[in-house]
């Protein structure tokens, strides 16, 4: 297990099962996601079965089980964005990337996350890529944006 995880666990030395969620949060903060190994390690630490930890973690939207892609896409599904058609935007992203929310593409380029309101209702529907907001998205605009990023990536890849 990574030393960072061990350091966190050391902090939670005498923790019991009621400390599970803060522990998961801290490890995700540090590692970017919850790996199989991390879940098994936490299980040994808190004497909890992996199935239980996975059950708790999947109850909340905040936990991820794959590392983030190079371009981490957050889709706002808050009320304003919903009214303005964010469901269709999310759908277009899923189709274009061929992944579900919470997953990462095989090439590691993109990951997709559904979030509640990100506080930019004036820009609805909005998505954020690596923290940069893209306003007034439509399925078409989404596809164009993704393809532009891909082209950029391919170009820089070819240049290497």
């Amino acid at each position: 297990m990574s030393p960072a995880v061990e350091t966190i666990l050391e902090k939670y030395r005498n923790a019991k099962r009621d400390q599970l969620i803060p522990l998961l949060q801290e490890i995700q903060e540090s590692e970017g996601y919850l790996s199989r190994e991390a879940v098994a390690r936490i299980g040994r630490h808190l004497r909890l079965p992996a199935s239980k930890i996975y059950g708790v973690a999947t109850f909340y939207n905040q936990f991820r089980f794959q590392s983030n892609g190079k371009h981490h896409i957050q889709v706002c599904r808050g009320t304003a964005c919903h009214v303005k058609g964010s469901a269709k935007v999310l759908d277009a992203l899923k189709r274009e990337l061929k992944i579900d929310a919470g997953a990462t593409t095989r090439d590691g380029l993109f990951s997709l996350e559904v979030v509640a309101c990100i506080g930019a209702c004036g820009l609805a529907p909005v998505i954020s890529i690596n923290g940069e907001f893209h306003a007034n998205m439509t399925p078409d605009a989404t596809r164009k944006l993704l393809r532009a990023i891909r082209r950029e990536e391919e170009k820089s890849h070819a240049a290497d």
């Binding site: 199989r36 879940v39 079965p49 992996a50 199935s51 239980k52 930890i53 996975y54 059950g55 999947t58 109850f59 909340y60 089980f65």
Partner: peptide
């Protein structure tokens, strides 16, 4: 005392299965 399976997910999407489904 095995705990191979548990509830995964939430609400109408809940399923019962092993860790990491």
């Amino acid at each position: 005392g095995v705990s191979a399976i548990d509830f995964i997910g939430r609400g109408s999407r809940t399923v019962v299965g092993p860790a990491f489904d």
